[in-house]
Design a protein around this nucleic acid. Sequence first.
DNA 1: TCGATGCTTCGGCTATCATCGAACTATGAA
DNA 2: TTCATAGTTCGATGATAGCCGAAGCATCGA
Lengths: 231, 231
Amino acid sequence: MKAGPDISRIAALVGDPARCNMLTALMTGRALTASELAQEAGITPQTASSHLAKLEAGGLIEPEKQGRHRYYRLSDPDVADVLEGLQGIAARAGHMRVRTGPKDPALRRARICYDHLAGDLGVQMLDSMRRQKLVRQSKQAIELTGEGKRFMAEELQIDADALTHPRRPVCKACLDWSERRHHLAGTLGAAMMDRFTELKWAARDAAPGSRVVNFSRNGEKRFAALFGAGE
Amino acid sequence: MKAGPDISRIAALVGDPARCNMLTALMTGRALTASELAQEAGITPQTASSHLAKLEAGGLIEPEKQGRHRYYRLSDPDVADVLEGLQGIAARAGHMRVRTGPKDPALRRARICYDHLAGDLGVQMLDSMRRQKLVRQSKQAIELTGEGKRFMAEELQIDADALTHPRRPVCKACLDWSERRHHLAGTLGAAMMDRFTELKWAARDAAPGSRVVNFSRNGEKRFAALFGAGE
DNA sequence: TCGATGCTTCGGCTATCATCGAACTATGAA
DNA sequence: TTCATAGTTCGATGATAGCCGAAGCATCGA
């Protein structure tokens, strides 16, 4: 009768799995490109473009054009709050995502999240860094300690002071979608992943579009020596 | 593919206009019947039944069966909070609300619900009985206290021990049609209404099919003395 | 017991919309 | 310029799901 479709339209936007995946990917607070969001949602760029246009029209996200990229971020912290509220209701109702694909185990173990390491190993790495007091975390903010800087220089030949970036934090907690815990993002997370690749400890999967990261036997050993679960 | 609470399923439930209208109708905190919700959403009872089943499965609403009616309410204040958050995002004002209950003021005030007193006075009576500690209520179950038994015997000449019935509880909380709060049902509720009638405090309306209960002037006074709002 | 009412289930129809292939625009790099 | 990458638009397709008529239960009132 009295159709007040305002709230239902917003909810319908979140109600589509692909769009929802995009939104949850943006809940880290970082802006992502259309392609990355497409990848995150597991859909083609064409489909993603359509979804992004709808989300933008609905006022849930805002674009920022940069070169030939289009970065999207949540338009307002309130949006994130509502999404978290929905997560609370969903969790209480016991509605967890259950679908798992064949490639899933490898993806859960180690994968690229934008430009840094994610998955089981990514979460494990940040855990270990916290235990070793290489980083200090207060709420969402993470910063490298003095000892952390020394560690980066000595063990990985990374100059932490050179990682400052105008639009990006050095350290950032990124919510891992498979582990549901944080891993390390930011320029440091990216630099570390770069170093792992350079050292041939790990390599991105050859398959195009794959986010899987494969560790070499030696790489796994060295990685475990630095960030092993026991340390 | 992803782990964690599946918020898109919940959002999709809210995303349908018909279901959304039902939910906003329930945001008053009152329980509504399936038919009322169907009317509110502008759909047939069959369709509404399907929607309500989905909302219930999603944990957004909870049913309470009452005779051949099925009352639904939001399962949790959190649900209302999220809906309000969505309204905030939709950035729209003024939501009207349905009128619930009978138009007839007399019917709202006092009426027969099967065989016991309902309406404003019925709700008021149970409220007062709780305040006077004549009954003890834990969740849905209500039972007469020792003091309650004495009260029934002395004030209303009702032998509570004689009210046990093989197929019916002595005390029962019954959801009130117009007030959307509980009043007292069960054999005790019926016995009390019988007593009110015998004492000529109240009488059912003469009109056939009417459920209105008319209190005499004296009856109203005596009733208020026992179950007045102030006590 | 019978009829009336509230609600649900079932089956089929239909509209919506997510999806992708193909083609197009725009920016950046060589 | 030419090529590559990022992103969009368009059209066709297919699956989902909302919708209602008809029929089936369940409960209440008489």
